[in-house]
Write a protein that binds this DNA or RNA. Structure first.
Lengths: 346, 346
DNA sequence: GTCCGGAATGAAAGCGCTTTCATGCAGACT
DNA sequence: AGTCTGCATGAAAGCGCTTTCATTCCGGAC
C-alpha cells in the first residue's frame, strides 16, 4: 500500500532496448534520430519506451553528447514587465526546439551577475542571453572561456564585436526628447535609471542630452538617477521638486515607464496637472502605460520580439548556421496623453 | 591573434589533480568535502584549481552523484508581480546553498504545465515548486514517479497529503468580503480569475459566496470569470456593466489586484467614482495597489515569503530533514481608499 | 617492540547516455 | 556470378565526475 511516491529510479534506455529487442545504440538512435533506423524498429522502441514510462536522463545525455539543451538567460530582474514578457517569449521559442530555459536574475548587482552567469555556465548551458552590453570583465572572460554562444539584448554593440539584438537606446531616447522639443518645451528634467554598469540607462540619458544640446539646451541640475521602479520614480520626482532648481521645468523625460508612472502618481498627489503643468514621457510601453488616463507617451519596445529573436538566433548558431552580428528590432514613438505643449506662461 | 572566444573545453578535475600532485579522488574530495582531506592537500588542490581556471562539469557531477543541485519552479506566468517576487526570493534562497533555479511558465495552460514539468524532471531537478494544488493527473504521476520532493504554494491542501506553503484563499477572500459587508454593502459583483484548473481562483470565489451566503446574499448574475490581467479586468467590468443586472451593485470583489486595477481604470473612464459610487477590492497587494490614488483595498500576501519558505523547505527535505506538511504564511486585510460605505441611495 | 585503529589517500568501478567504428546484409552494377 | 555500395544495426569506448573499497601510514595502547 505504498504510495506511488515511493517508486524509484525509473527505466533506463538499456531497459527500453532490451524490451524492444534491439541494442542500446539502436534504441538511442530511434529516439534521437528517427531517420537513422527502420520505421518498424523505431515503432518497437517507441512502444517499449512508452510502456516503461521511460524518461531520458538529462545529465547522462548532456555528458555524452556535450550539449545540455538548455539556454541560460541572465536578467537584471524578472520583476519588470518587459523582461517578464521577453522571458516568456524566449522560453516558448526554445521549447519548440526541445530546449529549456534556465533563468537567473541579479537585481542590478554587477557582482551577482557574474556569479549567476558562472553558475549557469557550470550547469552546462549551451547558450546565453544577456541584457545590455555592459558587463564586468570577469563575465566576458567566463563566457569566452566556456565558448558558449551569447546574445546581448536590448542594446546594440557599437564595436560590432558582440552578437546583439536590440535597438539604439540613444537614438530612441533622442527621438522622444525631440518630440517634446517640437511641442515647444525648453525646460527639461530627467528621471534616469542608475547609469553605473547599465549601458541602456546611460545611452538613454545621453540621447536626451544630445537632443537638448543640439538646441543649445541642457537639463543640468535637474537630472536624478534612481532605481527603475514605480516607487523610486515617485520618490525621485519628489526629491527633484525639492531642489533649488526644482519645479522650473515643463517636461520630464523618464528612463522607463515604471519611473514615468511613479512620477505621474506623485504629480496627481501634488495636484500637478499632466500634461497641462508638466509633460511626462516614459520608455518601453508596458501594458499599464496604455491603460492609464491620461495614457503615457512613451517609446514602444517589442520586448517579446527581442526575446524571441535572441532565442531564435541562439538556436541558429547552435545548429551551426551563421547569423548577422546585429539584429535591430523596430521601436516606435507612441504619443498619448501625457505630453502637450507647455503652458503659455507659468 | 585568435580571440579568447576560441579557447575550448577547459581543465578537468583530472588536470587539477595532476597539477596538485594528488589523485582524482582526493581532488574531488578536497573540493566537495574539505573535511575529508588534510588542510595542506586541500590548499594544494584549491590552488591548482584556481590556476587552471577549473569549472566543475555540472552534468558529470549530476550523473555521478545523482543530484543536480537544481530546483525547478513551475509558474502560471512570470508576468505577474507576485510570481516575479516569489521567483526572486526562491532563487536567492537557493543560491545561498549552491542550488540553481530552473524556471518554467505555462501561461495558465494545464497541458503546457504538464509538458514543462516533465521537461524539468528530465533535466534532473532535485526538487520542484508548483503553484496551487490543482493539477492534471499526469503531472502528479510524473512528479511521483520521479520521486522528487515537491512544494505546492499559494494554497493549502485540504487533504493534508501534499506539502504546501500558503494560506486559505477561501478564508482570505471571505475576510475581504466581510469587510465590504460591514461597510454596509448588500449588492455585490465579482471579477474572478478563470476557475477551471485554478484552485486559488476557485477558492477565492467560493470565499466570496460563502461570506455572502452567511448573510443570505449572493452575486448571481454578476460574476464574471476572466484572465488575471489588467486589460482583462477592464474588459470584464465593461462586460458586466452591459448585462441586464449590470450597474445594480455597490461593491466589486476582484480575484486579484490586476483585475481590480483594470476595473478602477474602467471606472475612471466611465466617470464611476470609486469608492463613492462603487467600492472595489483586490487580492495580493502588489506595489501598484498602494501607489495609486485612491489606494486599493486588498489582501496582502507576502509573496517573497512564500517563495523563500518553499525553497527553504525543499532544501531541508533534500538534506534529509523532515518539515511540517503544511506551512501557513500570514495574510492581512489592507484597507485603503477604494472601499467605503455605499451611497445612501442610488 | 608489536599490534591495532583511524585518518588520509589512491584505484577503479560505474552513473546513463551518445557516438564512432565495425559488421552484416540487401540490392545495384559490371 | 562477383564485387561494390549503402543502409540498418551492434559492440564498445568514453563523457567528467563521485564514491565505494582497499591500501598506506601514522600514533598510541599493550
Amino acid at each position: 500500500m505504498l504510495g506511488a511516491a515511493m517508486r524509484k529510479s525509473s527505466a533506463r534506455l538499456a531497459d527500453v532496448a532490451r524490451t524492444a529487442g534491439v541494442s542500446l545504440s539502436t534504441a538511442s538512435r530511434a529516439l534521437a534520430e528517427p531517420g537513422l533506423v527502420r520505421e518498424d524498429t523505431r515503432a518497437k522502441v517507441e512502444k517499449a519506451a512508452a510502456r516503461l514510462g521511460y524518461v531520458p536522463h538529462g545529465a547522462a545525455r548532456a555528458l555524452a553528447s556535450r550539449r545540455s539543451r538548455t539556454i541560460g538567460a541572465v536578467l537584471p530582474t524578472v520583476d519588470n514587465p518587459i523582461f517578464a514578457s521577453a522571458t516568456q517569449a524566449i522560453a516558448q521559442e526554445l521549447a519548440a526546439s526541445g530546449y529549456t530555459l534556465l533563468l537567473a536574475a541579479y537585481d542590478y548587482a554587477p557582482d551577482a551577475e557574474v556569479a549567476v552567469t558562472r553558475a549557469l555556465l557550470e550547469r552546462g548551458v549551451d547558450g546565453l542571453v544577456l541584457v545590455g552590453a555592459d558587463h564586468q570583465r570577469e563575465l566576458f572572460q567566463a563566457v569566452d572561456q566556456a565558448g558558449v554562444p551569447c546574445e546581448f539584448t536590448w542594446t546594440l554593440d557599437s564595436s560590432g564585436y558582440r552578437h546583439c539584438v536590440g535597438f539604439s537606446n540613444r537614438l530612441a531616447s533622442a527621438q522622444i526628447t525631440q518630440h517634446l522639443l517640437e511641442l515647444g518645451h525648453r525646460k527639461f528634467a530627467v528621471l534616469s535609471g542608475h547609469t553605473a554598469g547599465n549601458d541602456r540607462a546611460r545611452e538613454r540619458l545621453a540621447g536626451v542630452r544630445e537632443a537638448l544640446a543640439a538646441r543649445g539646451l541642457d537639463a543640468d541640475g535637474r537630472i536624478v538617477e534612481t532605481t527603475f521602479s514605480l516607487g523610486h520614480g515617485r520618490a525621485a520626482l519628489r526629491e527633484l521638486l525639492e531642489r533649488p532648481a526644482g519645479r522650473d521645468f515643463t517636461a520630464l523625460v523618464c528612463g522607463n515607464d515604471l519611473l514615468a508612472l511613479g512620477a505621474m502618481l506623485e504629480c496627481r498627489e501634488r495636484g500637478i496637472r499632466v500634461p497641462e503643468d508638466l509633460s511626462i514621457t516614459g520608455f518601453d510601453d508596458i501594458e499599464l502605460a496604455a491603460e492609464l488616463a491620461p495614457g503615457l507617451t512613451t517609446l514602444h519596445v517589442p520586448s517579446g520580439e527581442v526575446g524571441r529573436r535572441a532565442a531564435a538566433r541562439l538556436l541558429e548558431r547552435l545548429a551551426g548556421r551563421k547569423v548577422a552580428r546585429e539584429e535591430q528590432v523596430p521601436v516606435e514613438l507612441i504619443v498619448r496623453g501625457t505630453t502637450a505643449p507647455p503652458a503659455k506662461k507659468r
